[in-house]
């Protein structure tokens, strides 16, 4: 299995599109590092500019001993505002700085979710079909490896590479923003496993279709169709807008398909902005569907003639 895993990593490295994704990730965090300008007065953060825009700071702590951890302060202030029924003044935090920083993090997490996952799917989508190419699969199957080890090694390679990519992007952005602003929001890092898991769920579709048909193009088309369908199904008014006869189908499909939009619209931004987390059910059901897709793919791969 290790051999197939290493072969997959080498193949990914040989595909410049994966290297390109790492370059794009570097550009994103480097841009943020350069764009966020901080004014420090007497060791305290007095002001900030993001892309040249002034950010208003909340009152600085009176002394170092009274300064709580920033994320605690954020949670307390948000909770207090909510308990008192006050409308927060800024969309993503108690101050403009928090709003700018957390908003930027939410933007990066959202981009990684909606665009990054698609790019990663295109970059790695052909790997399962290419594994089954005549002349290549014959060589692999003639080794003393079980079929599940061969497919598992390939998937482990894809999973490791994409985890590294997401961790690199989100981790670097989090570190840059936190170091520059002093606002540490470790919950933002939870976006890494969420984004990665949802990528793997969609990759389960690619794997199943590729194993069944041997066509990478068809597998990507099916994923895109599935994403489109899940976007349509996520429209809240859909059930009331369609004929009653179709409602069971809509409800059934909502439960049968990965709930990609729900996780992307709710869970990922919530993790970035420190808001209470919802959509865990959508996330869990998506993971379950992904597990089912992989189980089917492994079953089919073990029974196929090559």
């Amino acid at each position: 299995m290790l051999g197939v895993f290493l072969l997959t990593l080498r193949e990914l490295r040989a595909k410049w599109i994966v290297v390109g994704l790492f370059v794009v990730a570097t550009l994103i965090w480097a841009t943020m590092a350069l764009a966020l300008q901080l004014d420090v007065v007497d060791g305290s953060l007095a002001g900030a500019r993001l892309f040249g825009q002034e950010a208003e700071m909340g009152p600085p702590p009176e002394d170092a001993e009274q300064a709580p951890a920033r994320d605690d302060a954020l949670a307390d202030s948000t909770a207090a505002a909510q308990a008192g029924g006050e409308e927060p003044g800024f969309p993503f935090g108690a101050s403009l700085l928090e709003s700018v920083v957390f908003g930027a993090q939410a933007f990066v997490a959202g981009a990684a979710y909606w665009v990054g996952i698609l790019l990663a799917l295109f970059a790695t989508g052909g790997l399962i079909a290419s594994l089954q190419t005549r002349g290549e699969i014959d060589l692999l199957l003639s080794k003393p490896l079980s079929r599940s080890a061969i497919l598992g090694g390939r998937l482990a390679g894809v999973a490791a590479a994409t985890l590294a990519l997401v961790t690199y992007l989100i981790g670097a952005v989090w570190l840059v923003m936190s170091l520059k602003s002093g606002l540490w929001n470790p919950r933002f890092l939870l976006a890494i496993p969420v984004i990665w898991s949802m990528f793997l769920v969609l990759y389960g579709v690619v794997t199943l279709v590729s194993v069944w048909t041997g066509s990478s193009a068809l597998s990507l088309m099916v994923v895109l169709a599935l994403l489109f369908a899940s976007l349509v199904l996520a429209i809240p008014e859909l059930e009331t807008q369609i004929a009653a006869g179709w409602r069971p189908l809509v409800v059934g499909l909502r439960h049968a398909l990965p709930r990609f939009p729900s996780v992307g619209v709710q869970l990922v931004p919530q993790l970035a902005t420190g808001e209470p987390v919802g959509a865990l059910g959508a996330f869990a059901s998506s993971l379950g569907i992904g597990g089912g897709l992989y189980a089917l793919a492994f079953w089919r791969f073990s029974r196929r003639d090559f």
Binding site: R10, R134, G135, E136, D138, L139, S142, K143, P144, L145
Partner: peptide
């Protein structure tokens, strides 16, 4: 799979990764 532990195979039109 163990049956193939001491087996070598040269398939027709084999493909090795070019990189």
């Amino acid at each position: 799979p163990e049956a193939r532990r001491t087996v070598g195979f040269l398939p027709e039109n084999h493909r090795f990764p070019g990189y």
